[in-house]
Amino acid sequence: MTQQDEERTRTAYDTVADLYADTFTATEPEQPLELAMIDHFVTSLGESPRVLDAGCGAGRLLPLLAARGCRPQGVDLSPGMVRRARADHPAYRCTVGSLTDLAFSDDEFDGVLSWYSTIHAPDADLDRVLAEMARVLRPGGHLLLAFQVGEGVRDIGPGFAAHGLRVTLDRYHRSVLEVASRLERLGMPVTARLERGPVGRETDPQAVVIARRPVG
Rank of each mutant, 00 (worst) to 15 (best):
1 M>R: 15
5 D>Y: 01
8 R>I: 10
11 T>V: 09
11 T>G: 07
22 D>Y: 00
25 T>S: 09
27 T>P: 06
29 P>Q: 05
31 Q>R: 13
31 Q>L: 12
33 L>F: 04
33 L>S: 11
33 L>W: 10
36 A>P: 09
45 L>D: 02
46 G>Q: 02
49 P>W: 03
50 R>L: 07
55 G>Q: 04
56 C>N: 10
59 G>M: 03
61 L>Y: 01
65 L>V: 02
65 L>E: 04
66 A>Q: 08
67 A>F: 04
67 A>G: 15
68 R>S: 00
69 G>E: 03
72 P>M: 01
74 G>P: 09
79 P>S: 07
85 A>D: 10
95 T>R: 13
99 L>H: 02
100 T>S: 14
103 A>C: 04
103 A>S: 12
108 E>S: 13
110 D>Q: 08
111 G>E: 03
113 L>Y: 09
113 L>P: 12
114 S>Q: 10
115 W>G: 06
118 T>F: 08
120 H>S: 10
125 D>L: 02
129 V>I: 14
132 E>R: 07
136 V>D: 07
137 L>H: 06
138 R>H: 11
141 G>I: 15
142 H>D: 10
146 A>P: 10
148 Q>W: 14
152 G>Q: 05
155 D>R: 00
157 G>D: 06
160 F>M: 08
167 V>P: 11
171 R>W: 09
171 R>M: 14
172 Y>H: 15
173 H>W: 10
175 S>D: 07
176 V>W: 06
177 L>H: 13
178 E>L: 14
180 A>T: 15
181 S>L: 14
184 E>H: 07
188 M>N: 05
192 A>D: 09
196 R>S: 11
205 P>C: 05
206 Q>M: 09
209 V>G: 00
210 I>H: 00
213 R>M: 03
215 V>K: 03
216 G>W: 01
